[in-house]
Amino acid sequence: MQFLVITLKRCGLGLGLLLAVLVLNFLLMHLAPGDVADSIAQDAGGLDAEVMAQIRKDYGLDLPLWEQMLKYFYSVAQLDLGYSFYYNQPVTTLILEKLPATLLLIISAQVVSILVGVVLGVIAARKPNGVTSHFVTILSLVGYAAPVFWTGIMLIILFASMIPLFPIGNMVDVSVERTGFAYMVDVLHHLVLPMLTLASIFIALYSRLARASMLDVLGSDYVRTAQAKGLSEFQVVFKHALRNALLPVVTTAGLVFSGIVSGAVLVETVFSWPGLGTLAVQAIVARDTPTILGILFFSSLVVVVANLLTDMLYRIIDPRIKTAETSEI
């Protein structure tokens, strides 16, 4: 019951944050030089003042600011994020078309980096002076210092150009029509390099975190008790220690989601992955403000939802805080 109450409370907070993103969006739209009338006039090669005024009236730009803001909230509540003049489509349609590709990239990168990172971290923690431990140290330095798009380009040159194992970009091979299973395999084949590129930053982060927290936990009393009871090494490490050592990883996984979305923008651009990031870059080149702000809103939505899920996961892993007010450490 309390679990439900806290979850609802968190949802409320998330909604508040999204509302704040909308306010910010609205302000940006108004602070930005030029409005809809200006861009229509530019497309038409210049309009006279009367027509411009009419356009502003049609779009409700002559209303007081707070009224415009309420109208904006109302339309967003109906999933209407405006119209893109560049693509001649409603922004919501555009975004929903591209969202699955981005989600696939983000989620697979997150899952792979957590898995690989935790495994590396655990191995490193069991032998703090072993080869894996040094490897983790070097990996975390390199993973942090290399610009993610540069890593991507180097991977393309290595594994798509010099050794043609993977395609250089895009999400499907457009030259062949595929359906069903063959289509999925094709997408996965295209996913490998971008996913690894995006995961590279976070593998570094998680392996370092997992190593540190595992070292902490392995030195604690209850692990010694478990060892003294004669449990196998495997049981001690994976059933007793890991559960606690995972907590910092889960906390961080929630915190870095906005970073993953940022990384995805760059990775998508490098690999021409047809997701929100590529769309955002195109929209920025085309100065298509409604689309850019729509993407900003939708990606904030993704981060908020991801944070909610992480928070719930955290409560499931750590029963101690199942009923606590907040998971903030």
Binding site: V21, A32, P33, V261, S262, G263, V265, I295, L296
Partner: peptide, 15 residues
């Protein structure tokens, strides 16, 4: 929560 790179892109593109 704000996707940092996207927000910065918007700022630089608009201003």
């Amino acid at each position: 929560v704000l996707p940092t790179l996207l927000f910065s892109m918007v700022l630089v593109a608009l201003f």
